[in-house]
């Protein structure tokens, strides 16, 4: 046998396709897959959340209070109660036992937790200038309870984490990639919830004071240091300016009256 050395021109062992094109296909597939999971889980979680009786939620809230005892804030409670009193008779919110807490933190935020617990950060209270503004914020949180967003959020978050861990294993890189993509969907969904809660808050504020004055004041103050709208794509809340525009549109649509706001009363000024 004669050995003739020969250099092969073609390499059959390496695929010819461009890696960036492969990346595009795979990423597209991932977004589609995760979107589908999110949609299915979301529908299930929303359905389940709407079926949970308020009694069960109140019980959860009481268990949480036993674990983390905290003092309720009386001045805030008075404001909340007057808002609840102006709700219609058949409102779901009358079944709740609300507890409102003031937490010392520079963060400008308020939270609605399962079981009718509302947490207001002192950083937010320091920013508030009028009774109407505060009522708008509290009414917004009540809106979350009315739409049962806290339960839905809990259900979705839990479902997504469990699904990702089950499908790809808890420690795998694929699972963390999937949950990161999901967070983007979550942000979009949560922005919709915030807008819906804003609308609820506006209606309740108008019912309480007879006019919509002060509804957008708090957000206008936020806009000053909010900056560009672009980074808000990934956050849980919409850009303040977007919220103001949406509120103003509803005020116009419903012909709400705008009147002068009431300054904060002495019991709340003590926290400033």
């Amino acid at each position: 046998m004669i050995f003739t050395p020969k250099q092969l021109d073609e390499n059959v062992n390496v695929s010819k396709s461009h890696p960036l094109i492969e990346l595009l296909w795979l990423l597209g597939g991932l977004i589609l897959l995760v979107g589908l999971i999110f949609f299915l889980l979301g529908v299930t979680a929303d359905w389940a959340a709407s079926k949970v009786p308020v009694k069960v939620e109140n019980w959860i809230g009481q268990q949480a209070l036993k674990e983390f005892p905290a003092e309720e804030n009386l001045p805030l409670n008075l404001r909340l109660q007057s808002l609840i009193d102006s709700l219609p008779e058949d409102s779901l919110l009358h079944q709740y036992k609300f507890h409102i807490f003031l937490v010392d933190s520079v963060e400008i935020n308020a939270l609605a937790l399962p079981g009718g617990n509302i947490i207001v950060y002192s950083g937010l209270l320091k920013q508030v200038q009028s009774e109407n503004e505060l009522a708008m914020i509290l009414a917004h949180e009540l809106g979350h309870f009315a739409h049962r967003d806290h339960l839905r959020g809990l259900g979705r978050g839990l479902g997504v984490a469990v699904a990702a861990a089950l499908l790809f294993g808890g420690e795998s890189a694929a699972s963390s990639l999937v949950s990161k993509t999901l967070l983007t969907f979550q942000a979009r969904y949560s922005q919709d919830q915030e807008s819906a809660a804003d609308q609820f808050g506006l209606d309740l504020l108008t019912k309480r004071y007879g006019h919509a004055g002060g509804a957008t004041d708090f957000f206008s103050r936020l806009t000053e240091d909010a900056g560009s709208k672009l980074p808000y794509f990934l956050t849980s809340h919409p850009h303040p300016q977007v919220r103001i525009d949406a509120l103003n549109e509803r005020i116009k649509e419903k012909h709400f009256r705008i009147a002068k706001t009431q300054p904060l009363e002495a019991d709340l000024l003590a926290f400033h």
Binding site: S15, S17, P19, L30
Partner: peptide, 18 residues
Amino acid sequence: FKRLLAILRNIFGGRVKS
């Protein structure tokens, strides 16, 4: 980058071209 492509491949299956 190759690792990222391979991780994505882990989800869908197929040839790990990278």
